[in-house]
Amino acid sequence: NKFNKEMRNAYWEILLLPNLNEQQKRAFIRSLYDDPSQSANLLAEAKKLNDAQA
Rank of each mutant, 00 (worst) to 15 (best):
N1V: 04
N1Y: 00
N1F: 01
N1A: 02
N1L: 03
N1K: 04
N1P: 03
K2T: 15
K2P: 03
K2H: 15
K2S: 14
K2E: 15
F3N: 07
F3E: 07
F3A: 04
F3L: 08
N4Y: 06
N4E: 15
N4V: 03
N4R: 02
N4G: 11
N4S: 03
K5F: 02
K5P: 13
K5R: 02
K5W: 04
K5D: 06
K5G: 03
E6D: 07
E6M: 02
E6L: 04
E6T: 03
E6P: 05
E6H: 02
E6A: 03
E6Q: 04
M7L: 14
M7Y: 06
M7I: 08
M7R: 01
M7E: 15
M7K: 01
R8A: 11
R8S: 08
R8Q: 13
R8D: 09
R8V: 05
R8M: 14
R8T: 12
R8F: 05
N9Q: 14
N9P: 02
N9R: 15
N9M: 12
N9Y: 14
A10V: 09
A10Y: 02
A10G: 02
A10R: 03
A10P: 01
A10Q: 02
A10L: 05
A10D: 02
A10I: 09
A10K: 03
Y11R: 15
Y11L: 08
Y11V: 13
Y11T: 05
Y11G: 02
Y11I: 15
Y11F: 09
W12P: 01
W12F: 14
W12N: 15
W12I: 05
W12K: 15
E13F: 09
E13P: 01
E13S: 10
E13H: 12
E13L: 07
E13V: 15
E13Q: 11
I14D: 00
I14S: 00
I14R: 00
I14G: 00
I14N: 00
I14A: 01
L15W: 06
L15P: 01
L15Q: 14
L15N: 09
L15T: 15
L15S: 09
L16N: 14
L16S: 06
L16P: 02
L16A: 15
L16T: 14
L16R: 13
L16D: 10
L16F: 13
L17E: 01
L17K: 03
L17H: 09
L17F: 13
L17R: 02
L17I: 03
P18T: 04
P18A: 08
P18Y: 05
P18W: 02
P18G: 10
P18M: 08
P18H: 07
P18R: 12
N19Y: 10
N19W: 08
N19M: 06
N19H: 15
N19V: 08
N19Q: 06
L20V: 08
L20A: 01
L20M: 05
L20D: 00
L20W: 00
N21M: 14
N21V: 06
N21S: 05
N21F: 15
N21G: 09
E22K: 06
E22G: 12
E22M: 06
E22L: 06
Q23V: 12
Q23W: 14
Q23S: 15
Q23Y: 11
Q23H: 12
Q23M: 10
Q23N: 08
Q24M: 06
Q24R: 06
Q24S: 05
Q24A: 06
K25A: 03
K25G: 01
K25E: 01
K25F: 03
K25I: 05
K25D: 00
R26N: 09
R26W: 04
R26H: 06
R26E: 02
A27D: 15
A27S: 14
A27L: 07
A27F: 09
F28E: 00
F28K: 02
F28T: 03
F28S: 03
F28A: 07
F28P: 00
F28I: 08
F28Y: 10
F28M: 09
I29D: 00
I29T: 14
I29K: 03
I29S: 03
I29A: 04
R30W: 12
R30P: 00
R30H: 09
R30I: 08
R30D: 06
R30A: 13
R30L: 05
S31G: 13
S31A: 10
S31I: 09
S31K: 11
S31N: 12
S31L: 09
L32G: 01
L32W: 03
L32F: 03
L32Y: 01
Y33W: 05
Y33S: 03
Y33D: 02
Y33K: 04
Y33I: 05
Y33A: 03
D34P: 03
D34V: 12
D34H: 05
D34R: 09
D34E: 15
D35R: 08
D35M: 10
D35Y: 08
D35W: 04
D35Q: 14
P36M: 05
P36D: 03
P36R: 05
P36V: 04
P36H: 06
P36Q: 06
P36N: 05
S37L: 08
S37G: 03
S37E: 09
S37N: 10
S37R: 11
S37M: 09
S37P: 04
S37A: 11
S37T: 11
Q38A: 11
Q38L: 14
Q38R: 10
S39H: 15
S39R: 10
S39Q: 04
A40Y: 13
A40I: 06
A40P: 08
A40H: 14
A40T: 07
A40G: 08
A40M: 11
N41F: 07
N41D: 13
N41A: 05
N41H: 11
L42H: 14
L42M: 11
L42D: 01
L42T: 12
L42W: 13
L42P: 02
L42Q: 04
L42S: 07
L43P: 01
L43A: 11
L43W: 03
L43N: 04
L43R: 12
L43M: 07
L43G: 03
A44T: 15
A44M: 13
A44P: 01
A44D: 14
A44E: 12
E45S: 11
E45M: 12
E45W: 14
E45Q: 10
E45V: 14
A46N: 00
A46F: 01
A46R: 00
A46H: 00
K47D: 02
K47Q: 09
K47P: 00
K47Y: 09
K47M: 04
K47N: 09
K48N: 13
K48S: 11
K48A: 06
K48G: 13
K48L: 15
L49S: 06
L49A: 15
L49T: 14
L49D: 05
L49Q: 02
L49V: 08
L49W: 12
N50D: 07
N50F: 01
N50S: 08
N50V: 02
N50H: 03
N50A: 09
D51F: 12
D51W: 13
D51S: 10
D51M: 15
D51K: 06
D51G: 15
A52H: 10
A52Y: 15
A52R: 12
A52S: 14
A52Q: 07
A52D: 15
A52L: 11
A52N: 09
Q53G: 12
Q53L: 14
Q53Y: 10
Q53A: 07
Q53K: 01
Q53R: 01
A54F: 13
A54Y: 13
A54Q: 12
A54S: 13
A54E: 14
A54G: 14
A54M: 13
A54I: 06
